[in-house]
Nucleic acid binder design. Structure first.
Lengths: 211, 211
DNA sequence: CGCAACCGGAAGGTTCTCGTCCACATCAGT
DNA sequence: ACTGATGTGGACGAGAACCTTCCGGTTGCG
Protein backbone atom coordinates (compact mmCIF):
# COMPACT_ATOMS: atom_id res chain seq x y z
CA UNK A 1 0.00 0.00 0.00
CA UNK A 2 0.99 3.55 -0.19
CA UNK A 3 2.98 2.19 -3.07
CA UNK A 4 2.74 -1.32 -4.29
CA UNK A 5 2.20 -0.98 -7.95
CA UNK A 6 3.23 -3.30 -10.73
CA UNK A 7 4.82 -6.20 -8.91
CA UNK A 8 2.55 -9.20 -8.79
CA UNK A 9 2.69 -11.12 -5.56
CA UNK A 10 3.62 -14.72 -5.41
CA UNK A 11 0.68 -17.01 -4.81
CA UNK A 12 1.42 -17.73 -1.17
CA UNK A 13 2.24 -14.11 -0.50
CA UNK A 14 -1.08 -13.12 -1.93
CA UNK A 15 -2.84 -15.60 0.28
CA UNK A 16 -1.06 -14.34 3.36
CA UNK A 17 -1.94 -10.80 2.49
CA UNK A 18 -5.59 -11.69 2.33
CA UNK A 19 -5.43 -13.51 5.62
CA UNK A 20 -3.81 -10.52 7.21
CA UNK A 21 -6.52 -8.22 5.94
CA UNK A 22 -9.22 -10.53 7.20
CA UNK A 23 -7.61 -10.86 10.58
CA UNK A 24 -7.07 -7.14 10.80
CA UNK A 25 -10.73 -6.44 10.12
CA UNK A 26 -11.74 -8.84 12.83
CA UNK A 27 -9.29 -7.66 15.39
CA UNK A 28 -9.72 -3.97 14.75
CA UNK A 29 -13.46 -4.28 15.06
CA UNK A 30 -13.11 -6.28 18.21
CA UNK A 31 -10.30 -4.66 20.09
CA UNK A 32 -9.89 -1.29 18.42
CA UNK A 33 -7.13 0.17 16.32
CA UNK A 34 -4.44 -0.10 18.94
CA UNK A 35 -4.15 -3.84 19.14
CA UNK A 36 -0.61 -5.14 19.05
CA UNK A 37 0.50 -5.98 15.57
CA UNK A 38 1.51 -9.37 16.84
CA UNK A 39 -2.09 -10.17 17.70
CA UNK A 40 -3.10 -9.50 14.12
CA UNK A 41 -0.26 -11.60 12.81
CA UNK A 42 -1.16 -14.46 15.11
CA UNK A 43 -4.78 -14.52 14.01
CA UNK A 44 -3.70 -14.38 10.43
CA UNK A 45 -1.45 -17.34 11.05
CA UNK A 46 1.66 -15.55 9.91
CA UNK A 47 4.72 -14.07 11.53
CA UNK A 48 5.09 -10.41 12.39
CA UNK A 49 7.77 -10.08 9.79
CA UNK A 50 5.35 -11.02 7.05
CA UNK A 51 2.89 -8.46 8.28
CA UNK A 52 5.48 -5.72 8.25
CA UNK A 53 6.75 -6.55 4.81
CA UNK A 54 3.27 -6.23 3.39
CA UNK A 55 2.29 -3.12 5.31
CA UNK A 56 5.14 -0.83 6.26
CA UNK A 57 3.44 0.26 9.43
CA UNK A 58 0.19 0.12 11.33
CA UNK A 59 -1.14 3.18 9.59
CA UNK A 60 -0.81 1.60 6.17
CA UNK A 61 -2.70 -1.44 7.37
CA UNK A 62 -5.46 0.69 8.76
CA UNK A 63 -5.77 2.59 5.55
CA UNK A 64 -5.93 -0.58 3.51
CA UNK A 65 -8.61 -2.08 5.69
CA UNK A 66 -10.65 1.09 5.76
CA UNK A 67 -10.52 1.35 2.00
CA UNK A 68 -11.80 -2.12 1.51
CA UNK A 69 -14.57 -1.60 4.00
CA UNK A 70 -15.76 1.71 2.75
CA UNK A 71 -15.59 0.36 -0.75
CA UNK A 72 -17.82 -2.56 0.12
CA UNK A 73 -20.37 -0.34 1.77
CA UNK A 74 -20.40 2.08 -1.10
CA UNK A 75 -20.93 -0.72 -3.56
CA UNK A 76 -23.81 -2.01 -1.55
CA UNK A 77 -25.30 1.44 -1.21
CA UNK A 78 -25.36 1.75 -4.97
CA UNK A 79 -26.67 -1.74 -5.46
CA UNK A 80 -29.41 -1.10 -2.93
CA UNK A 81 -30.40 2.12 -4.63
CA UNK A 82 -30.62 0.34 -7.95
CA UNK A 83 -32.25 -2.89 -6.86
CA UNK A 84 -34.69 -2.11 -4.10
CA UNK A 85 -38.19 -1.13 -5.12
CA UNK A 86 -38.40 1.96 -2.92
CA UNK A 87 -35.93 4.39 -1.46
CA UNK A 88 -37.08 3.43 2.01
CA UNK A 89 -36.26 -0.19 1.34
CA UNK A 90 -32.87 0.79 0.03
CA UNK A 91 -32.27 2.90 3.10
CA UNK A 92 -33.19 0.03 5.36
CA UNK A 93 -30.90 -2.30 3.50
CA UNK A 94 -28.10 0.19 3.67
CA UNK A 95 -28.50 0.66 7.38
CA UNK A 96 -28.59 -3.03 7.97
CA UNK A 97 -25.64 -3.77 5.78
CA UNK A 98 -23.74 -0.90 7.29
CA UNK A 99 -22.79 -3.09 10.12
CA UNK A 100 -19.87 -3.93 7.90
CA UNK A 101 -18.80 -0.40 8.41
CA UNK A 102 -18.58 -1.11 12.10
CA UNK A 103 -14.92 -1.51 11.81
CA UNK A 104 -14.21 1.71 10.01
CA UNK A 105 -16.36 3.63 12.39
CA UNK A 106 -14.61 2.16 15.36
CA UNK A 107 -11.36 3.08 13.81
CA UNK A 108 -12.52 6.59 13.21
CA UNK A 109 -14.04 7.15 16.59
CA UNK A 110 -11.67 5.40 18.88
CA UNK A 111 -8.33 6.64 17.92
CA UNK A 112 -7.44 10.13 16.82
CA UNK A 113 -4.35 8.86 15.07
CA UNK A 114 -6.34 6.29 13.11
CA UNK A 115 -8.83 8.94 12.17
CA UNK A 116 -6.08 11.23 11.02
CA UNK A 117 -4.60 8.48 8.90
CA UNK A 118 -7.95 8.03 7.24
CA UNK A 119 -8.91 11.59 6.59
CA UNK A 120 -5.59 12.28 4.99
CA UNK A 121 -6.04 9.51 2.49
CA UNK A 122 -7.74 10.99 -0.56
CA UNK A 123 -9.07 7.67 -1.74
CA UNK A 124 -10.76 6.93 1.55
CA UNK A 125 -12.15 10.41 1.67
CA UNK A 126 -13.61 9.92 -1.75
CA UNK A 127 -15.27 6.67 -0.75
CA UNK A 128 -16.69 8.29 2.32
CA UNK A 129 -18.04 11.17 0.32
CA UNK A 130 -19.61 8.71 -2.06
CA UNK A 131 -21.36 6.90 0.74
CA UNK A 132 -22.59 10.11 2.24
CA UNK A 133 -23.89 11.31 -1.10
CA UNK A 134 -25.78 8.08 -1.58
CA UNK A 135 -27.22 8.38 1.90
CA UNK A 136 -28.23 11.92 1.20
CA UNK A 137 -30.10 10.90 -1.92
CA UNK A 138 -31.82 8.03 -0.23
CA UNK A 139 -32.99 10.18 2.65
CA UNK A 140 -34.41 12.77 0.32
CA UNK A 141 -36.10 10.17 -1.84
CA UNK A 142 -37.56 8.28 1.09
CA UNK A 143 -38.98 11.48 2.41
CA UNK A 144 -40.48 12.22 -0.99
CA UNK A 145 -42.08 8.79 -0.81
CA UNK A 146 -43.67 9.94 2.42
CA UNK A 147 -42.34 7.04 4.41
CA UNK A 148 -39.42 8.67 6.16
CA UNK A 149 -40.28 11.42 8.61
CA UNK A 150 -39.54 14.86 7.29
CA UNK A 151 -37.73 16.32 10.25
CA UNK A 152 -34.66 14.12 10.06
CA UNK A 153 -31.61 14.85 7.98
CA UNK A 154 -29.02 12.49 6.56
CA UNK A 155 -26.81 13.35 9.49
CA UNK A 156 -29.43 12.04 11.87
CA UNK A 157 -29.58 8.79 10.01
CA UNK A 158 -25.82 8.49 9.90
CA UNK A 159 -25.63 9.13 13.61
CA UNK A 160 -28.28 6.52 14.30
CA UNK A 161 -26.38 3.99 12.26
CA UNK A 162 -23.22 4.75 14.12
CA UNK A 163 -25.08 4.08 17.33
CA UNK A 164 -26.09 0.69 16.07
CA UNK A 165 -22.49 -0.24 15.61
CA UNK A 166 -22.00 -0.33 19.30
CA UNK A 167 -21.49 -3.74 20.70
CA UNK A 168 -24.21 -4.32 23.23
CA UNK A 169 -23.33 -6.40 26.23
CA UNK A 170 -25.13 -9.71 26.15
CA UNK A 171 -24.66 -13.17 27.47
CA UNK A 172 -23.87 -14.56 24.05
CA UNK A 173 -23.02 -13.40 20.58
CA UNK A 174 -26.31 -14.74 19.32
CA UNK A 175 -28.44 -12.67 21.67
CA UNK A 176 -26.21 -9.69 21.00
CA UNK A 177 -27.06 -10.10 17.37
CA UNK A 178 -30.75 -10.40 18.13
CA UNK A 179 -30.72 -7.35 20.31
CA UNK A 180 -29.00 -5.34 17.64
CA UNK A 181 -31.54 -6.40 15.06
CA UNK A 182 -34.43 -5.53 17.35
CA UNK A 183 -32.88 -2.18 18.12
CA UNK A 184 -32.62 -1.50 14.42
CA UNK A 185 -36.29 -2.23 13.92
CA UNK A 186 -37.23 0.03 16.81
CA UNK A 187 -35.18 2.81 15.33
CA UNK A 188 -36.66 2.26 11.89
CA UNK A 189 -40.11 2.54 13.39
CA UNK A 190 -38.99 5.74 15.03
CA UNK A 191 -37.89 7.02 11.67
CA UNK A 192 -41.25 6.41 10.03
CA UNK A 193 -43.36 9.38 9.08
CA UNK A 194 -46.32 8.46 11.28
CA UNK A 195 -47.39 10.70 14.12
CA UNK A 196 -44.39 10.81 16.45
CA UNK A 197 -43.11 13.69 18.50
CA UNK A 198 -41.36 16.54 16.72
CA UNK A 199 -37.60 16.49 16.95
CA UNK A 200 -35.81 19.36 18.65
CA UNK A 201 -33.57 21.59 16.55
CA UNK A 202 -33.04 21.39 12.82
CA UNK A 203 -32.41 18.31 10.74
CA UNK A 204 -28.78 17.28 11.03
CA UNK A 205 -26.78 17.31 7.85
CA UNK A 206 -23.69 15.38 6.95
CA UNK A 207 -21.61 18.45 7.45
CA UNK A 208 -22.80 18.77 11.01
CA UNK A 209 -20.98 15.56 11.72
CA UNK A 210 -17.66 17.21 11.14
CA UNK A 211 -15.25 16.17 8.43
CA UNK B 1 -12.96 2.71 49.27
CA UNK B 2 -12.36 -0.75 50.43
CA UNK B 3 -11.72 0.53 53.91
CA UNK B 4 -11.80 4.05 55.18
CA UNK B 5 -13.95 3.97 58.21
CA UNK B 6 -13.80 6.19 61.27
CA UNK B 7 -11.04 8.61 60.39
CA UNK B 8 -12.35 11.99 59.36
CA UNK B 9 -10.40 13.66 56.62
CA UNK B 10 -8.87 17.02 57.03
CA UNK B 11 -10.75 19.76 55.23
CA UNK B 12 -8.29 20.14 52.38
CA UNK B 13 -7.93 16.41 52.03
CA UNK B 14 -11.64 16.10 51.69
CA UNK B 15 -11.68 18.73 49.01
CA UNK B 16 -8.95 16.98 47.10
CA UNK B 17 -10.77 13.71 47.32
CA UNK B 18 -13.83 15.26 45.78
CA UNK B 19 -11.81 16.84 43.01
CA UNK B 20 -10.24 13.50 42.27
CA UNK B 21 -13.61 11.82 42.03
CA UNK B 22 -14.91 14.53 39.73
CA UNK B 23 -11.86 14.36 37.52
CA UNK B 24 -12.01 10.58 37.43
CA UNK B 25 -15.63 10.65 36.27
CA UNK B 26 -14.76 13.02 33.51
CA UNK B 27 -11.68 11.26 32.36
CA UNK B 28 -13.06 7.76 32.57
CA UNK B 29 -16.07 8.76 30.54
CA UNK B 30 -13.92 10.49 28.02
CA UNK B 31 -10.91 8.26 27.62
CA UNK B 32 -11.97 4.99 29.13
CA UNK B 33 -10.88 3.14 32.24
CA UNK B 34 -7.28 2.75 31.20
CA UNK B 35 -6.20 6.35 31.31
CA UNK B 36 -2.94 6.92 33.13
CA UNK B 37 -3.44 7.75 36.75
CA UNK B 38 -1.33 10.80 36.21
CA UNK B 39 -3.88 12.23 33.79
CA UNK B 40 -6.56 11.97 36.43
CA UNK B 41 -4.32 13.57 39.00
CA UNK B 42 -3.47 16.40 36.68
CA UNK B 43 -7.10 17.21 35.94
CA UNK B 44 -7.87 17.08 39.61
CA UNK B 45 -5.07 19.52 40.21
CA UNK B 46 -3.24 17.22 42.61
CA UNK B 47 -0.14 15.09 42.51
CA UNK B 48 -0.11 11.39 41.81
CA UNK B 49 0.94 10.76 45.36
CA UNK B 50 -2.25 12.28 46.68
CA UNK B 51 -4.30 10.16 44.37
CA UNK B 52 -2.61 7.00 45.47
CA UNK B 53 -2.96 7.79 49.15
CA UNK B 54 -6.70 8.21 48.77
CA UNK B 55 -7.27 5.22 46.51
CA UNK B 56 -4.81 2.38 46.91
CA UNK B 57 -5.00 1.44 43.26
CA UNK B 58 -6.91 2.07 40.08
CA UNK B 59 -9.46 -0.56 40.86
CA UNK B 60 -10.48 1.12 44.09
CA UNK B 61 -10.97 4.38 42.28
CA UNK B 62 -13.11 2.73 39.66
CA UNK B 63 -15.25 1.11 42.27
CA UNK B 64 -15.75 4.36 44.12
CA UNK B 65 -16.73 6.21 40.99
CA UNK B 66 -19.05 3.48 39.83
CA UNK B 67 -20.78 3.39 43.18
CA UNK B 68 -21.48 7.07 43.15
CA UNK B 69 -22.77 6.94 39.62
CA UNK B 70 -25.02 3.98 39.99
CA UNK B 71 -26.31 5.45 43.19
CA UNK B 72 -27.24 8.69 41.48
CA UNK B 73 -29.06 6.90 38.71
CA UNK B 74 -30.92 4.67 41.12
CA UNK B 75 -32.03 7.66 43.15
CA UNK B 76 -33.29 9.35 40.07
CA UNK B 77 -35.07 6.24 38.90
CA UNK B 78 -36.96 6.13 42.15
CA UNK B 79 -37.67 9.83 42.11
CA UNK B 80 -38.94 9.59 38.56
CA UNK B 81 -41.20 6.70 39.43
CA UNK B 82 -42.63 8.66 42.31
CA UNK B 83 -42.90 12.08 40.74
CA UNK B 84 -43.83 11.64 37.11
CA UNK B 85 -47.52 11.40 36.29
CA UNK B 86 -47.24 8.30 34.10
CA UNK B 87 -44.88 5.38 33.89
CA UNK B 88 -44.05 6.36 30.34
CA UNK B 89 -42.96 9.79 31.49
CA UNK B 90 -40.89 8.24 34.22
CA UNK B 91 -39.30 5.92 31.70
CA UNK B 92 -38.47 8.79 29.41
CA UNK B 93 -36.93 10.73 32.24
CA UNK B 94 -34.91 7.74 33.32
CA UNK B 95 -33.59 7.16 29.85
CA UNK B 96 -32.68 10.77 29.46
CA UNK B 97 -31.03 11.03 32.83
CA UNK B 98 -29.24 7.79 32.30
CA UNK B 99 -26.68 9.57 30.32
CA UNK B 100 -25.06 9.98 33.69
CA UNK B 101 -24.56 6.28 33.63
CA UNK B 102 -22.48 6.75 30.56
CA UNK B 103 -19.41 6.48 32.62
CA UNK B 104 -20.27 3.27 34.35
CA UNK B 105 -21.31 1.68 31.14
CA UNK B 106 -18.13 2.65 29.46
CA UNK B 107 -16.26 1.22 32.35
CA UNK B 108 -18.19 -1.97 32.14
CA UNK B 109 -17.99 -2.41 28.42
CA UNK B 110 -14.54 -1.24 27.61
CA UNK B 111 -12.35 -3.05 29.99
CA UNK B 112 -12.77 -6.58 31.23
CA UNK B 113 -10.74 -5.83 34.29
CA UNK B 114 -12.87 -2.83 35.18
CA UNK B 115 -15.96 -4.90 34.70
CA UNK B 116 -14.60 -7.61 36.94
CA UNK B 117 -13.81 -5.07 39.62
CA UNK B 118 -17.39 -3.92 39.52
CA UNK B 119 -19.20 -7.20 39.46
CA UNK B 120 -17.24 -8.41 42.42
CA UNK B 121 -18.30 -5.47 44.51
CA UNK B 122 -21.51 -6.45 46.31
CA UNK B 123 -22.56 -2.88 46.84
CA UNK B 124 -22.31 -2.01 43.18
CA UNK B 125 -24.11 -5.17 42.24
CA UNK B 126 -26.91 -4.24 44.59
CA UNK B 127 -27.23 -0.80 43.05
CA UNK B 128 -27.31 -2.27 39.60
CA UNK B 129 -29.97 -4.74 40.57
CA UNK B 130 -31.99 -1.89 42.01
CA UNK B 131 -31.79 0.04 38.79
CA UNK B 132 -32.76 -2.95 36.75
CA UNK B 133 -35.70 -3.72 39.00
CA UNK B 134 -36.93 -0.14 38.65
CA UNK B 135 -36.58 -0.35 34.91
CA UNK B 136 -38.46 -3.60 34.88
CA UNK B 137 -41.36 -2.08 36.78
CA UNK B 138 -41.48 0.97 34.58
CA UNK B 139 -41.54 -1.06 31.41
CA UNK B 140 -44.35 -3.21 32.65
CA UNK B 141 -46.33 -0.23 33.87
CA UNK B 142 -45.83 1.75 30.70
CA UNK B 143 -47.05 -1.20 28.69
CA UNK B 144 -50.09 -1.45 30.93
CA UNK B 145 -50.73 2.19 30.17
CA UNK B 146 -50.77 1.22 26.54
CA UNK B 147 -48.12 3.70 25.55
CA UNK B 148 -45.09 1.46 25.33
CA UNK B 149 -45.18 -1.18 22.63
CA UNK B 150 -45.83 -4.63 23.97
CA UNK B 151 -43.16 -6.54 22.16
CA UNK B 152 -40.19 -4.98 23.91
CA UNK B 153 -38.70 -6.17 27.15
CA UNK B 154 -36.71 -4.29 29.74
CA UNK B 155 -33.58 -5.69 28.18
CA UNK B 156 -34.43 -4.03 24.90
CA UNK B 157 -34.84 -0.72 26.63
CA UNK B 158 -31.60 -1.15 28.53
CA UNK B 159 -29.79 -2.01 25.33
CA UNK B 160 -31.24 1.02 23.60
CA UNK B 161 -30.09 3.23 26.41
CA UNK B 162 -26.64 1.79 26.26
CA UNK B 163 -26.58 2.65 22.57
CA UNK B 164 -27.37 6.23 23.38
CA UNK B 165 -24.33 6.47 25.56
CA UNK B 166 -22.11 6.31 22.56
CA UNK B 167 -20.37 9.48 21.72
CA UNK B 168 -21.40 10.43 18.23
CA UNK B 169 -18.83 12.16 16.10
CA UNK B 170 -19.77 15.76 15.47
CA UNK B 171 -18.07 19.00 14.72
CA UNK B 172 -18.76 20.37 18.16
CA UNK B 173 -19.92 19.24 21.55
CA UNK B 174 -23.07 21.25 21.14
CA UNK B 175 -24.17 19.50 17.97
CA UNK B 176 -23.16 16.20 19.48
CA UNK B 177 -25.55 16.92 22.28
CA UNK B 178 -28.28 17.89 19.87
CA UNK B 179 -27.81 14.78 17.81
CA UNK B 180 -27.99 12.61 20.89
CA UNK B 181 -31.19 14.26 22.00
CA UNK B 182 -32.75 13.86 18.58
CA UNK B 183 -31.70 10.25 18.47
CA UNK B 184 -33.36 9.70 21.80
CA UNK B 185 -36.62 11.13 20.52
CA UNK B 186 -36.48 8.96 17.43
CA UNK B 187 -35.95 5.92 19.58
CA UNK B 188 -38.73 6.91 21.92
CA UNK B 189 -41.05 7.23 18.94
CA UNK B 190 -39.93 3.80 17.88
CA UNK B 191 -40.84 2.51 21.29
CA UNK B 192 -44.39 3.82 21.15
CA UNK B 193 -47.21 1.38 20.84
CA UNK B 194 -48.49 2.74 17.52
CA UNK B 195 -48.49 0.59 14.42
CA UNK B 196 -44.82 -0.19 13.79
CA UNK B 197 -43.31 -3.38 12.49
CA UNK B 198 -43.20 -6.39 14.74
CA UNK B 199 -39.85 -7.08 16.34
CA UNK B 200 -38.06 -10.31 15.55
CA UNK B 201 -37.57 -12.82 18.34
CA UNK B 202 -38.85 -12.54 21.88
CA UNK B 203 -38.73 -9.55 24.19
CA UNK B 204 -35.28 -9.25 25.69
CA UNK B 205 -35.07 -9.49 29.44
CA UNK B 206 -32.50 -8.16 31.79
CA UNK B 207 -31.03 -11.58 32.18
CA UNK B 208 -30.43 -11.85 28.48
CA UNK B 209 -27.93 -9.09 28.86
CA UNK B 210 -25.67 -11.33 30.88
CA UNK B 211 -24.68 -10.53 34.43
C1' DC C 1 17.20 -27.21 -10.70
C1' DG C 2 18.39 -22.58 -9.10
C1' DC C 3 17.14 -18.04 -8.00
C1' DA C 4 14.28 -14.77 -6.15
C1' DA C 5 10.82 -13.85 -3.34
C1' DC C 6 9.06 -14.90 0.95
C1' DC C 7 8.61 -16.59 5.76
C1' DG C 8 8.79 -16.83 11.02
C1' DG C 9 10.04 -15.18 15.12
C1' DA C 10 13.97 -13.76 18.23
C1' DA C 11 15.85 -9.57 19.88
C1' DG C 12 17.16 -4.57 20.39
C1' DG C 13 15.48 -0.30 21.54
C1' DT C 14 12.04 2.85 22.77
C1' DT C 15 8.10 4.42 25.19
C1' DC C 16 4.77 4.22 28.77
C1' DT C 17 2.84 3.38 33.40
C1' DC C 18 2.76 2.10 37.90
C1' DG C 19 3.26 2.88 42.58
C1' DT C 20 6.71 4.35 46.21
C1' DC C 21 9.15 7.56 48.82
C1' DC C 22 10.48 11.64 51.19
C1' DA C 23 11.44 16.56 51.85
C1' DC C 24 8.30 20.17 52.29
C1' DA C 25 3.64 22.52 53.10
C1' DT C 26 -0.64 23.01 55.51
C1' DC C 27 -4.13 22.35 58.98
C1' DA C 28 -6.01 22.48 63.66
C1' DG C 29 -5.88 22.59 68.46
C1' DT C 30 -3.81 25.09 72.48
C1' DA D 1 1.70 31.90 67.41
C1' DC D 2 3.52 27.25 67.89
C1' DT D 3 3.83 22.44 66.90
C1' DG D 4 2.81 17.81 65.82
C1' DA D 5 0.03 15.33 62.85
C1' DT D 6 -1.71 15.07 58.58
C1' DG D 7 -1.44 15.85 53.82
C1' DT D 8 1.07 17.06 49.34
C1' DG D 9 3.72 16.94 45.01
C1' DG D 10 6.40 14.92 41.71
C1' DA D 11 10.99 12.67 40.81
C1' DC D 12 12.30 8.02 40.24
C1' DG D 13 13.42 2.99 39.70
C1' DA D 14 11.34 -1.17 38.16
C1' DG D 15 8.92 -3.44 34.84
C1' DA D 16 5.93 -4.26 31.04
C1' DA D 17 4.32 -3.68 26.40
C1' DC D 18 5.13 -2.65 21.72
C1' DC D 19 7.24 -1.55 17.39
C1' DT D 20 10.24 -2.68 14.00
C1' DT D 21 14.33 -4.77 12.10
C1' DC D 22 17.04 -8.53 10.71
C1' DC D 23 18.51 -12.89 9.07
C1' DG D 24 18.86 -18.02 8.58
C1' DG D 25 15.96 -21.00 6.49
C1' DT D 26 11.94 -22.15 3.19
C1' DT D 27 9.12 -22.21 -0.90
C1' DG D 28 7.01 -20.87 -5.23
C1' DC D 29 8.13 -20.45 -10.04
C1' DG D 30 10.36 -20.47 -14.59
Amino acid sequence: MTAEAGTRLRADARRNRDQIMAAAKEVFAELGPDVPMEEIARRAGVGVGTLYRRFPDREALIRAVAQENFGAVLDDARAATAEEPTAWDALVRLMRRSRDLRLSVRLAVLSPSAWAAMRDDPQIRQLRDGIMAALDDLVRAAQAEGVLRDDVGPGDVAALVSLLLRRVPADSDATAELIAERALVVILDGLRADPGSPLPGRPVTIRDLGD
